Simulated scan of single mutants.
Amino acid sequence: MSGTHDHAALNRSAALASISMASLLVAIKGYGAWSTGSAAMLGSLADTALDLVASVATLAGVWVAGQPADDNHRFGHGKAEALSALFQVVLIGVSAVVLAIHSVQQLIAGGRSEQAGEGIIVSAVAIVGTLALLAWQRHVLSRTRSIAIATDHLHYQSDLILNVAVIIALALDQYAGFTRADPLFGLGIALWLGWGAWKASQEAIEQLMDHEWPEDKKARFIEVLAMHPELRGVHDLRTRTSGNQDFVQFHVWIDGNMTVTHAHKVMDEIEAKLKTHFPDVEILIHPDPEGHVGESGVMAEDILKGV
C-alpha cells in the first residue's frame, strides 16, 4: 500500500507542478501577446492556456481514476481520464479554429508585429521553464509510469516546439522584414493544435469503447500464459484498458479429471505468473474441462496453437 500511496503522491506532485508552470506561462505569454500583437504569440498563449486546462483535467483525472472500486463502479474509475481528455479535445478544437481565423485575417490585412524583442524574450523564458517541468515529469514517469502524466508530458514537449516557432516567426518579422511570417506561423500552430486534438480524441474514444490491447502487447501476454505446463488450451481472450488499469479475461482448458482444489491452485499459479510480467492488470480466469467449448467462431479457437 505504501508504494501505491507514493506513486499517487508523485503523480499529484507532477500534476500540480504542471498547473503552477502553466499558470506562470499564461501570465507572461498574455503580456507578450498583448505587447506584440503577434498571431504566433497568441497561438502559443492559446496552447499554454490549454495546457493549463489539460493539467487541471489531468489532476482531476488522476484523482478520480485513483479512487478504489465501489458498489456503483465495480471496475474502478479509470475512464475518468478518457472523459477529461474528451473535454480537452473540445477546448483545443475551438481554440484552433479561432486562432486560424485570426491568422487569416492578419495575413490579409498585413502589418508587422510590435515589440517583437519582448516576444522573443518571453518565449525564451517559457522554454527554460518548460524544460524544468519536463525534467520533473520524466522523474515521476520513471517511478509511476502514469498514463495521465505521460500524456501531459507530451503536451509540454509540443509546447517547446511552439515556443521555438514563435521566436523564429518574430525574428523573421522584426529582423528579416518578412511581415507575413507571423500570421503564417500562427496558422501553422492552429493546424498543429487541430492535429493534436484529433489524436487525443482517438485515444480517448478507444478507451471509452473498450478497444482491445495492441497486438504486440497481447502477443507478449499469450507467451507468458503459455508457460504453465498444465494448460491444455486457451480461448475467448478479451482485453481492455481503462485509464491506467488493464483488464483481461479468458477461458482455459485443463484436465477434466482435475479436482476443484487442484484447478484453483493452477488458476492461482497462472495469475501469479502473469502478474510478474503485467503487474497492473486485473485478471479473470474461467476454467473449462479440456475440449469443452461454449463459444463459437473466433472466440472458440485455441490461441495457444503455434505459440
Rank of each mutant, 00 (worst) to 15 (best):
S44L: 06
T48R: 12
Q67P: 03
A40G: 13
R74E: 14
G66A: 07
T58E: 05
S44K: 13
S35K: 14
T48G: 09
P68N: 06
N72T: 10
S38I: 02
W63A: 13
I28Y: 12
D70L: 01
K29G: 01
Q67N: 11
S38Y: 04
P68C: 14
G61S: 03
R74N: 07
A22S: 13
V53Y: 02
A46K: 03
D70G: 02
G66T: 00
W34K: 13
W34P: 12
D51E: 05
G32M: 05
A65N: 04
G30M: 02
M41D: 03
V56Y: 03
G43W: 05
T58A: 10
A49P: 00
T58D: 04
L52G: 08
Q67G: 13
L59Y: 05
S38P: 07
V56S: 04
D70P: 09
A22M: 06
R74L: 13
R74T: 13
I28K: 15
F75D: 01
G43T: 05
I28D: 00
D70Q: 06
P68Q: 05
A54R: 03
A27W: 00
A39M: 15
A46M: 11
L59I: 01
M21R: 07
L24C: 13
A57W: 05
T36Q: 11
W34D: 09
G32D: 11
A27G: 07
A27V: 11
A60L: 12
A60Y: 02
A60N: 05
T36K: 11
Q67W: 10
P68R: 08
S35W: 11
V53G: 09
D47E: 08
D51F: 10
A57R: 09
V56K: 00
A33V: 01
